[in-house]
Write a protein that binds this DNA or RNA. Structure first.
Lengths: 220, 220
DNA sequence: AATCGTATAATTGTATACAAGAATACAAAG
DNA sequence: CTTTGTATTCTTGTATACAATTATACGATT
């Protein structure tokens, strides 16, 4: 059973070009390789990625829907990107919805999802023992994803997933002190326990604490 | 000065075809003309709208980003649409953020935006006097838009705008009793007054009341 | 020298052409 | 009659070609 796809879409092979292009452009914009205001000329992107304009334009349209790019009629696409204020705002919005997600998850979680959450948490314990921070970051994301799914709220799931996608490049520069793994594990244990025991109040509180600490750590 | 664009994007002329196509397809999916599970064959859409596949595909990509359509590799696009549960969930999410928006708006609103909010409210009074429900629905949307802008939170603005866009077709079948206009006006007056007086607590409360009533009315 | 106008080049918007994979129809085997 | 394999058709994915708009270069005029 495959629990976690290491979903770096930039290297998906069996997908339309525009999908991997989208992921690459998202990455390049969010990491600052492509800067706000910069013109994205289709021809240059064609040469850069060695594909024709069709998939390029499709990727640009999706970036536009994400709000990372602005398209001006007959003049082309320009990078919008994310300001520090944008990140701050997104973080605040994420926090509120992560807390709400716990409540809905407790109300609606299925047995299968509960098993998956437990299994995911056990992976966290395993990687903490192994002291594997990179794996932990992936599992961390996965743990929250299970909660999103368990909320059975498509809107919430889509939104929080996209926020994760936006914020993940911030996490790369995270403070990783010696207590990172054990601290994060403890925080997730509280969340997991509350969900298992269907304790809404405790779950929301545990999530709030976790997200606030995540902000201080500048990563999940 | 143009206060309100009657933004039925289905009739924008000076825009790429894919933009008006997107609006039309959104409308057709949200009003149920195109049903969940239905295959959207590019050729058929070409004939339907008398354009080539290029703009069709671009519109489909954006619908995919909206979550209204699912794209399966080499098999095409399928309508996802919005279930009643989706609408319910979206409404709950919207509520949380409309309330949050008031708080941020009060903290960050500029003089220009305050003027615009006042002007918008005065239009509401005018159209209430004129008993013009259709205009009222548009102004109602505009009033909230000003608050979104005043929150100076791009993420929030984008999210709530898209929710408005999704929910607007629901409003068309709204209960429109004889008190609709005066009730809605009174609700907005409370919100407006609280923002003008920078009373966060009153503003959030007024918005919560307004949104809850809007849910009962099944429209803004 | 600065500004305006025109011609040219470059870029986007749209349509079409070609390639690759998926669905369908149908025949042959069990 | 059902099933399986294959050929054909259809659809999508990608590249290219053409049209329309915008940007640039350069010379003429003041």
């Amino acid at each position: 059973m495959v629990l976690f796809k290491f979903n770096d879409d930039t290297e998906i092979s069996n997908a339309p070009i525009s999908t991997s292009l989208l992921a690459k452009l998202q990455r390049d914009i969010l990491t600052g390789k492509l800067k706000p205001g910069q013109k994205l000329t289709e021809q240059e992107l064609c040469k850069e990625y060695d594909v024709s304009r069709t998939p390029i334009r499709e990727a640009l349209r999706q970036l536009e829907a994400d709000g990372l790019v602005e398209n001006i009629l007959n003049r082309g696409s320009f990078v919008i990107g994310m300001s520090e204020q944008d990140y701050e705002d997104m973080f605040e919005m994420r926090k509120a919805y992560e807390i709400q997600a716990v409540e809905w998850a407790i109300e609606r979680i299925t047995e299968e999802e509960m098993d998956r959450l437990e299994e995911t948490f056990e992976f966290m314990e395993f990687y903490t023992m192994r002291n594997d921070i990179d794996k932990m970051l992936v599992i961390n994301s996965g743990f929250h994803q299970v909660i999103y799914e368990a909320s059975h709220n498509r809107m919430l799931q889509k939104l929080l997933s996209s926020y994760q996608n936006f914020l993940k490049y911030k996490g790369a520069e995270a403070v990783r002190d010696e207590n990172y793994l054990t601290t994060v594990l403890a925080e997730h244990r509280e969340i997991f326990r509350a969900i298992k025991e269907k304790d809404v109040k405790a779950g929301k509180l545990a999530m709030e604490i976790h997200i606030n600490r995540a902000k201080e750590r500048r990563c999940g």
